[in-house]
Amino acid sequence: MGRLFTAYRVLAIIVGVLLAFCSLVALPLKYLATDGSSLQTFGENASIMWVAHGWVFIIYVVVTFLLAREARWSIPFTVLALVAGLIPLVIFWVERSVVRRMREEHPELSAERA
Rank of each mutant, 00 (worst) to 15 (best):
L4Q: 14
W55S: 06
R9D: 14
M1D: 06
D35W: 12
T64A: 14
L11I: 15
I91H: 10
W93Y: 11
V10F: 05
G16D: 00
A81K: 09
G85K: 03
V17H: 10
L4F: 14
P28R: 04
S38C: 00
S110C: 00
T64K: 05
I14R: 01
G54E: 02
S38W: 03
A52Q: 13
M102K: 14
T34G: 04
A52T: 10
V99I: 12
T6H: 09
G2Y: 04
E105T: 05
F21S: 04
V90R: 03
A111Q: 14
W73C: 00
I87W: 00
V94L: 06
W55H: 09
N45W: 13
V61Q: 04
H53W: 12
V61W: 04
E70D: 15
W55C: 02
L19H: 02
I13Y: 11
A68T: 01
W55T: 11
T6A: 15
Q40Y: 10
Y31G: 09
E70L: 12
I75H: 13
K30F: 05
L80C: 09
N45T: 12
G85A: 08
S47E: 05
W50P: 08
W55N: 04
L24Q: 12
M102C: 13
S47N: 13
S74I: 07
Q40W: 03
W50Q: 00
Y31K: 04
H106G: 01
A46T: 05
S23A: 14
F57N: 10
H106T: 11
Y31C: 09
V99H: 06
S38V: 06
K30W: 09
I91F: 02
Y31M: 15
L66E: 08
I91C: 05
V62Y: 12
H53R: 05
V79I: 15
E105G: 07
I75M: 15
G43W: 11
T6D: 01
L86Y: 12
G54W: 04
I87H: 00
L32V: 04
F21G: 00
R103A: 03
W73L: 07
F57D: 11
G2A: 13
M1N: 05
A81Q: 07
V62P: 01
P107L: 06
S74F: 13
V10S: 08
S23E: 06
G16I: 12
R113D: 01
L109R: 06
L19A: 02
V83N: 05
L32P: 10
L86I: 13
A26Q: 00
V15D: 02
V15Y: 07
V83T: 13
P107Y: 13
S23L: 11
R103K: 15
E95I: 05
S97E: 15
K30T: 08
G54H: 06
V15K: 03
A20C: 11
L39C: 12
S47R: 09
V94M: 05
M102H: 05
